[in-house]
Design a protein around this nucleic acid. Structure first.
Lengths: 156, 156
DNA sequence: TTTAATTGGTACTATAATAGTACCAATTAG
DNA sequence: CTAATTGGTACTATTATAGTACCAATTAAA
């Protein structure tokens, strides 16, 4: 399904919440209550986000997290990257490729284009876009229906 | 990393090979040798591709697979969809969502847009594009460097 | 009509990735 | 000094993926 991890999803929900309330610090505990996620998980995600510069953290009593930038300067691509690492659809697109098919593979270089296209799509959606209700005129969800084997051989 | 599965990668390599030799049938065995992948895996992938109408299969002796359409009519999005199922970055974008956060979640509807953007990017790249050597003028790989935690807490 | 080649369907197992949890050190406000 | 809070790391459980095996169905050709 070309899935993101759940933690990334959580991360975007958390970032969205923070984007709507930038006037104060938010502790992991507070956020856990607000978005109804288990505290340990929230802490894990917040750590990753602050580690990668998307959040500014303050320690100690009355500490907490806040966005490091304006929500319209933070892209979905950045959030995904912060939590999952660089966007690399295939192994051979990364820094160090261990794919033993390389000598036989003709399509390797073209992966860069695809990766680029996806990155670009994700980089154009900003955190601020997540706050507003979905704009009208947006086309409905667009995927090929019933595209997977139903029998469990290949998992949906 | 927003990764595709390996099988999908295999699938695209196989489709590319077939696209460059559409004048004949290719058996799983032949393809396994040609692209240097284990036969069982090749068979699994070919089954998924033909099951979803991207390949036409013929059974029996002298049977095999061939593209069902011209390579410029087959998109990368279709291949991914055939092997991994509908592109749905998050759980809540699918048909039946089981996300228990839904009552609290404000960003759900916006996921459709993101999903759309990614799908569109992948749908514009055609199988025929994978055959030609990478066109000049294509920007280099584009991802945020060193974006993951190095310490093993969140895996790259 | 028999045999060999081939795909179709399904089930199973091993491996790897992810999610989730727990713990303690470091920092800071009161 | 104490309570609140993030930082760092390690560990375990769960799930998804990859990989393998098997036999039925089909077809061409000997």
């Amino acid at each position: 399904m070309l899935r993101m991890g759940k933690l990334t999803d959580y991360g975007i929900v958390l970032m969205s919440y923070l984007a709507s309330r930038t006037y104060q610090q938010h502790s992991a505990h507070t956020l856990s209550d607000a978005v109804n996620m288990p505290l340990p998980t929230v802490r894990k995600v917040l750590k990753a986000l602050s580690h990668n510069g998307l959040l500014i953290s303050e320690r100690g009593a009355q500490g907490g997290y806040n966005l490091s930038r304006s929500p319209n300067k933070i892209s979905i691509a950045e959030i995904i990257t912060a939590i999952e690492g660089p966007i690399a659809l295939t192994e051979c697109v990364g820094e160090e490729s261990h794919c033993e098919l390389e000598p036989y593979c003709d399509v390797q270089t073209n992966w860069t284009r695809i990766n680029n296209a996806v990155f670009h799509a994700l980089d154009e959606v900003k955190l601020s876009d997540m706050l507003v209700p979905q704009a009208s005129g947006v086309s409905p969800i667009h995927f090929y229906p019933e595209a997977t084997l139903q029998n469990g051989e290949l998992h949906a």
